[in-house]
Amino acid sequence: MSKSEKKKKESILLRLGNSQVWKSIIRSGVPRDRRGRMLSVLNSVFLHLHPVRMPKHAVKLKYTWCMGGLSFYIFLVLTITGILLMFYYRPTIEYAYTDMIDLREQVPLGIMREIHRWGAHLMVITVWLHMFRVFMTGSYKSPREFNWVVGVMLLTLTLLLSFTGYLLPWDQLAIWAITVGTNMARATPFLGHEGPGAALLSIGDINLVHAGSDVRFALLGGRFVGEAALLRFYVLHCIGLPFIIVIFMAVHFWRIRKDGGISTPL
């Protein structure tokens, strides 16, 4: 390529970068210099989760392990594959299991369920490791205490999301894991009908807390793991818990910036 050709080509790119359309989308144009690079982070709604500049150790893998970012990314992957799976899956005892098999055998590119499932496992691991990293670097200490608390909530919600999703295939693995899991709720003090203290809550001879009125019932919508339980877990898994976790994530990310960005040695 001759020099003039190269120059011409560059100028096309440049013109593109200066065109009205491009500039209307990305205000600062193509980031070519220091100023442009700063603006590209500052002006983007997604990138401005990050500060414009950061201390050197903050971009080192050795320090961050990238686990927090990966957790968020896997959450996005799970959301997208989850939406795709919802097109085929029906949460009823009659169809749930056969839909699982159809997802594997009849739907083209039938690895969506695999990505969703393995992704869920991976997210649990990355969230744990993220917490481990934050602990080891002392990043939970003042002024970041509250963000650690929010992080623990996120960890709990991740596990709950994974747990509610476990029932949906309606196979042996699913119902027994959920039977065991929800029977713990039955033993909640005062709120479960086989928990300590439940027998004390009664008016005359009538027990207030019984199999039809305790926390387990609220979870399952019935006294057994059945049709109602499947529907409830489905709604919690697809809408209820994601709704809550997104709120907590927003707070988590916001607080990272507000609490002074990534932790640095003084």
Binding site: L47, R53, M54, P55, V59, Y73
Partner: peptide
């Protein structure tokens, strides 16, 4: 981990590219 507080790196491209690769 210590680095001079005045000597920072830019998020674009230093961090963004690492994230992309990850």
């Amino acid at each position: 981990e210590y680095s001079d507080p005045d000597d920072k790196v830019l998020t674009w491209p230093d961090l963004v590219y690492i994230e992309l690769i990850a």
